[in-house]
Design a protein around this nucleic acid. Structure first.
Length: 289
DNA sequence: ATGGCTGAGTTGCTCAGA
C-alpha cells in the first residue's frame, strides 16, 4: 500500500500538477493540505476526476485558507473532521485535520498552524493545537495510526538548510520540537528520517530567490507512523520531481510504501490449486473467517 | 535587502505563508 502526503498550496491552482502526479505515482492513500477550497467547491472541481481514478474522498475545507483531505482507493471509513468540539482555534476554528480508516490504518491528514512568530497568539495556538492532536491520536490508539502532513516543525537542526538562519524563528523553537516529541512519544516513528539518517532531505523550499535550485529548504512535512505501520515500511522518500518545472507547490510530496498487513484486508495469501503445497496436500493454510 | 514568490479575497491592493 502506497501512502502519500502533499501540501499542494491551493488544489485549484495545482490541478495540472496533481492529476498527472496521481497517474504517475499511483498512491493508494493521499493526504492533502492547503487545499484552500470549501468542500462543495472541492467536489465540483475534482470529484469526477478523483472518482474516475477510484478514489473516495474525505474533506475538511474552508474557503481561501487551510483545508485538508484524504483520498483513498483502499477504503475510507469512520471519517472525522477536525480535532473534536473543544479543539483550539485562533481566531476561530480552522480546517486543519481530517481522519479516516483506510485498509485498517487510522490515517490523519494534518496542516499544523504556522505560528507566525514565537511571541504571538498564533504561536500559542500552534502549541495548543499540537496538544489536541496528540490527545486524538492517543485516543485512537497509536499502533495502527499514521499522522501525515505539513507539521510546520523541523524536527532537528539537520532539517533546515542553515540553523543560524532560523534562530528565533518558528518551526525550530524548543517548545515546538518538544510538542512534536510528545506526539512521537505515543509511539510514532518519523519514517523518512529513520530511512535516511543524516541525509539532507527537505520537503519545502521557498518560492523566492531560487531556493529550490540551491536546495535551501526545510523538512517540515512528515509521516509519523505507529509501531504496526512503521514495521511495514518498505520505502520512504520525498518526491522532489513534483517540486520542479512549471507551477509547482512550494512543498514536495512524501511517499511511503507499506508491505501488506499480516492480517490485511486483502485476505489471506493462498497458493493456486496447482501449487506444490496444494498438490501434496500439505499443511492446511489458515482460512479467512 | 525581512526582500526576493505565490495564492486568495478585501483586488489593482492587502494579508499569509515558512
Amino acid at each position: 500500500m502506497r501512502l502519500a502526503t502533499w501540501n499542494v498550496n491551493s488544489v485549484k491552482q495545482r490541478m495540472p500538477r496533481l492529476l498527472p502526479w496521481l497517474d504517475e505515482r499511483r498512491p493508494d492513500v493521499v493526504c492533502l493540505q492547503e487545499t484552500k477550497l470549501a468542500d462543495d467547491a472541492f467536489t465540483a472541481l475534482l470529484g469526477e476526476e478523483l472518482a474516475g481514478r477510484g478514489y473516495e474522498v474525505a474533506l475538511h475545507g474552508e474557503a481561501a485558507w487551510n483545508g485538508v483531505a484524504i483520498l483513498s482507493r483502499v477504503g475510507l471509513d469512520d471519517v472525522v473532521a477536525g480535532l473534536g468540539d473543544d479543539a483550539p482555534g485562533f481566531p476561530h476554528p480552522e480546517a486543519r485535520a481530517v481522519s479516516a480508516t483506510c485498509a485498517g490504518v487510522r490515517v490523519t491528514s494534518v496542516y499544523v498552524p504556522n505560528g507566525r512568530t514565537p511571541d504571538s497568539e498564533h504561536y500559542r495556538y500552534k502549541l495548543a493545537w499540537l496538544a489536541a492532536l496528540r490527545e486524538q491520536v492517543a485516543a485512537a490508539g497509536s499502533a495502527t495510526s499514521v499522522v501525515l502532513g505539513d507539521i510546520n516543525i523541523a524536527p532537528a537542526d539537520e532539517d533546515v538548510f542553515d540553523p543560524e538562519a532560523y534562530v528565533g524563528q518558528t518551526h525550530v523553537t524548543p517548545p515546538e520540537r518538544a510538542a512534536l516529541a510528545e506526539l512521537e512519544a505515543l509511539g510514532l516513528h518519523d519514517v523518512v528520517r529513520e530511512r535516511w539518517p543524516g541525509e539532507r532531505v527537505f520537503t519545502y523550499w521557498d518560492y523566492r530567490a531560487g531556493m529550490f535550485h540551491q536546495d535551501l529548504g526545510m523538512r517540515i512535512d512528515l509521516v509519523l507512523a505507529g509501531d504496526e505501520v512503521a514495521a511495514r515500511v518498505r520505502a520512504a522518500w520525498i518526491d522532489r520531481q513534483a517540486r520542479k518545472g512549471k507551477g509547482p507547490s512550494d512543498h514536495a510530496p512524501v511517499i511511503v510504501d507499506l508491505d501488506e498487513a499480516p492480517d490485511g484486508d486483502i485476505g489471506p495469501v493462498v497458493p493456486p490449486p496447482s501449487a506444490p503445497a496444494a498438490r501434496r496436500g500439505a499443511k492446511k493454510l489458515p482460512q479467512a473467517p
